[in-house]
Design a protein around this nucleic acid. Structure first.
Lengths: 173, 173
DNA sequence: CGACACATGTAACACGTTACATGATTTG
DNA sequence: CAAATCATGTAACGTGTTACATGTGTCG
């Protein structure tokens, strides 16, 4: 395939969920070629289009990727968890407010995702559907966790240091 | 606080879950100072230790961070979802095997996390506990999603193109 | 003819991450 | 005294991401 085609394909399979800048496709293709995982296809209709072909090394790497499960280490740290942890440790922050705002946002996202799922069901693109459902499961887990956080907060120290419901501007050094 | 101290603090609050290279602390501190969010504290015991203090700009940014909920956009794309989607689209890949291997890994991680939770409960560090529980919720969601994927696979096209249970080395171009 | 889809690329930036270099102080 | 802990930094790499520059073909 060639770059433009790859982007169209990717966007079709994930929808507006994961927008992909076309520039990145080309930079990535360059890097893949640099690493010898793909190579430009010699016998392709040279209409300005640059078709790439996977190499043996690339095929091996792809196989490794598929056969090696992802470990929790090596995944990017979860910003939300960090934020909540920091909010609890930092004096002068209304943790409840942070949780509630996030909860609202998460539920809204969940609603949007569910709406998208309807579309995905129609088009019957299996890959698209799974990606969508993955995000739904994640959003649900996030919502549950936030609820859990709130109950924990209510249960233990009930000392809302800051009564301000709005933006907490004052944070200790 | 000074760099070394920050790292100790962070490690204490997240445990071995998120190891943090000390070098990164210093690079990050430099970048924060570059952006005027923190500044070296003039009147500090100059024992070689470099104490930093948050600036007004920094305090504002921190407040913004706490008060602005995370949107699903802008978060890193989920590698697992991509992998599964790709596995389905790529001919010659035993998707079931991929799912099962991942499921095993996820359940193992879940077991480890639960074990860690026991420790977190003892030390009663609220922040650490929440981070831990966040990861548990996520892992559970992942497991549920994987199960869901498997049932979906069984339900629809039951055409295990590759009977090989082991590593699928042959992948189409 | 002008707008739009098709098609490719480059330069630059930010950030996470690691490896390496260095020195002071404590402690078994 | 040697080893470990405390403490700071720098150079470099890889990757995700964006903004920008460029050109061709098509069609209303």
């Amino acid at each position: 395939m060639y770059g433009y085609q790859l982007r169209v394909e990717f966007e079709a399979s994930t929808g507006a969920t994961w927008p992909l800048n076309i520039g990145q496709v080309y930079t990535t293709l360059s890097r893949l070629e640099r690493d010898g995982l793909i190579e430009p296809d010699a016998d392709a209709d040279g209409d300005g289009k640059v078709t790439y072909r996977i190499t043996d090394a690339g095929r091996e790497r792809l196989g490794d990727w598929f056969s090696t499960p992802l470990e929790r280490h090596g995944r990017p740290r979860d910003e939300l968890a960090i934020k909540l942890a920091m909010a609890m440790t930092t004096p002068g922050v209304d943790v409840r407010a942070v949780v509630q705002r996030q909860r609202t946002a998460t539920l809204r996202a969940l609603r949007d995702l569910t709406r998208l799922k309807a579309q995905a069901d129609e088009t019957a693109d299996a890959a698209w559907l799974l990606v969508n459902e993955s995000m739904i499961f994640q959003a649900e887990a996030e919502a549950r966790w936030l609820d859990h956080c709130e109950t924990q907060l209510t249960a233990s120290g009930r000392t809302p240091r800051s009564t301000t419901t709005g933006t907490p501007k004052e944070v200790a050094p």
